[in-house]
């Protein structure tokens, strides 16, 4: 029987970053995720799509929500999962990332989900192994499933699931852009789907070099607020900062924090996103984080569907390779 629509086929074995995906790839993955969303709401929260496949979570950095989201996504597709952490494993005994990965692969693994503090680690891993690799965050580079779930959330809230065309929408990303893999994945994905991206933060954390990606850079949140449709508030990542980038947390919160008072300058339908975990009182006030404009918990829910879609597509890539 003929498939309705085009002869499009998902071409990627790995999901390493949104920079590597075309607009069509992104739209296809998010459409697939839409089909997965109902699996989480029914009495039997499981489909047999990846029965007999093995997914390994290989995390060299702390993670709660991303790791559990990947584990749950794999279980809902009936895959078996194996949890490995950097701490307490042979990596702390001096084994290289490549050796670790090849040893895991030798156990008969189909997919490695990797988080690592070094930018490019997931790509390095993908070159070393024959199984699929999904990047769950590599240093300051990309966090593709986070970028995808953010865009999915916007498309749903804006009722754009049919077209996923974000032309005419403006999205601000606020905070520590320089150290943020979430920002990079969002920038690539949003621009590809036609949105305007405005980056906001102190010059030390939000340098003008980002203009070369096609974004607007601003250092004044109050100027930007009235002309945006969504705002993604990033967490200050103290653990990635090697020197002092701003005078004090209190000053940062005063200038770049989204408070209940400041949000009144924005359009009433402004959507407020946050990749979590929130530093309440720093980048987001409790009133805003828990308010009606907040999409924070929807983002977490959508993360499951998006990760299921990513795993399903990478593991069911059709055999005629086009990439």
């Amino acid at each position: 029987m003929t498939q309705a629509g085009s002869d499009y086929a998902w071409p990627h074995r790995d999901l390493l970053g949104l920079e590597d995906l075309s607009a069509q790839d992104i739209r296809f993955l998010l459409t697939t995720a839409h089909g997965f969303e109902d699996v989480s709401t029914r009495s039997i929260k499981k489909v047999p799509a990846l029965r007999g496949r093995v997914v390994v979570n290989l995390f060299f950095e702390d993670s709660t929500r991303t790791r559990s989201s990947f584990t749950l996504a794999a279980s809902r597709l009936s895959a078996d999962t194996l949890e490995l952490t950097g701490k307490g494993s042979s990596v702390s005994k001096g084994e290289t990332l490549t050796d670790t990965a090849r040893n895991i692969e030798a156990m008969g693994v189909d997919l490695i989900v990797c988080r690592h503090s070094h930018s490019g680690a997931a790509k390095h891993l993908a070159h070393a192994v024959n199984c699929s690799v999904i990047n769950a965050g590599d240093g300051q580079h990309e966090h593709p499933t986070q970028g995808l779930l953010d865009i999915y959330t916007l498309c749903k809230r804006w009722d754009l699931m049919d077209t996923m065309d974000l032309t005419g929408k403006s999205v601000a990303i606020v905070g520590d852009i320089a150290h943020s893999r979430v920002a990079r994945s969002n920038i690539h994905g949003l621009l590809k789907l036609g949105a305007k991206v405005i980056l906001v933060g102190p010059p030390t954390l939000c340098p003008r070099t980002f203009e070369s990606l096609g974004c607007e850079v601003s250092h004044n949140l109050d100027d930007v607020l009235p002309r945006i449709d969504a705002i993604n508030m990033l967490r200050i990542q103290f653990e990635r900062m090697t020197s002092q980038f701003f005078p004090s947390v209190r000053e940062y919160a005063k200038i770049f924090g989204l408070t209940g008072k400041r949000i009144t300058k924005a359009k009433p339908e402004l959507l407020v996103m946050h990749p979590g975990p929130i530093n309440r009182g720093v980048e987001l006030d409790a009133a805003v984080a828990d308010g009606p404009q907040s999409t924070i918990l929807e983002q977490v829910t959508h993360g499951l569907a998006v990760r299921m879609a990513g795993m399903f597509l990478c593991l069911n890539r059709q055999s005629n390779p086009t990439s």
Binding site: Q3, T32, H34, G35, D38, P48, A49, F312, N316, Q318
Partner: peptide, 23 residues
């Protein structure tokens, strides 16, 4: 009903499986 996720031939077909919503 979308049955893509329940198919027994996912690893054998040579066209892109398209997952749609079950409503």
């Amino acid at each position: 009903l979308d049955i893509t996720l329940y198919r027994d031939d996912l690893s054998e077909i040579n066209h892109q499986p398209v997952v749609r919503t079950t409503e």
